[in-house]
């Protein structure tokens, strides 16, 4: 069965016809040629497909496209190529060489931007020693929050350094 949906991808309105089984990730990649979000597992286990929907990070392989009708989707392409210049985190990734093969990278950047917003909003995580502790951008916090984004190239120390730099 097919359905027609509207997505606003990095500020561009797109009308798409999708199979009702199509995930948001496949709608972006296979149906609209937006290959910035990557598919590493298709099962919510790697984070490569992370995008921001309404400013919050989600795994686009676990979202059905039809459930995202009308949503604002931001990908790493939108973050790097925004009207006011690239997001500081995109720049920090380049400077810290926070990647090698680059395949996990768009997901890491989107996830990192989501983490920055969560820290800003004081949202708690498992890394806090005690519930209710103030939320700070410590390395332990960043690592905990970024742990859904795997990097087989092992760029973790540089990714954490990039997020830490922008968080401060």
């Amino acid at each position: 069965m097919e359905a027609t949906i509207i997505l606003h991808v990095d500020g561009v309105r797109r009308e798409l016809t999708v199979d009702t089984r199509t995930t948001l990730l496949d709608a972006l990649r296979d149906r609209s040629g937006e290959y910035s979000p990557k598919k590493g597992c298709d099962h919510g286990q790697c984070g490569a497909c992370t995008v921001l929907v309404g400013g919050r990070r989600i795994l686009s392989c676990l979202a059905l496209a039809v459930a995202c009708d009308g949503d604002e989707v931001t990908t790493a392409a939108g973050l790097a190529g925004g009207e006011d210049g690239p997001h500081p985190l995109s720049r920090a990734f380049v400077e810290h060489d926070a990647f090698q093969c680059g395949y996990c990278t768009p997901g890491q950047v989107c996830s990192g931007v989501g983490v920055l917003a969560e820290l800003e909003a004081g949202m708690p995580s498992h890394a806090a020693a005690h519930p209710g502790d103030p939320v700070e951008a410590t390395d332990a916090e960043i690592r905990e929050r970024m742990s859904g984004n795997l990097c087989r190239c092992g760029a973790y120390p540089a990714i954490v350094a990039a997020v830490r730099e922008v968080a401060r």
């Binding site: 790493a76 990734f93 380049v94 990647f99 680059g102």
Partner: peptide, 19 residues
């Protein structure tokens, strides 16, 4: 030197085989 394709990768513009 920074990677020549660094920005392409950070933006997700670098094209992989399937893309």
């Amino acid at each position: 030197d920074e990677r020549v394709e660094g920005w392409d990768k950070v933006a997700g513009r670098a094209r992989y085989a399937y893309e």
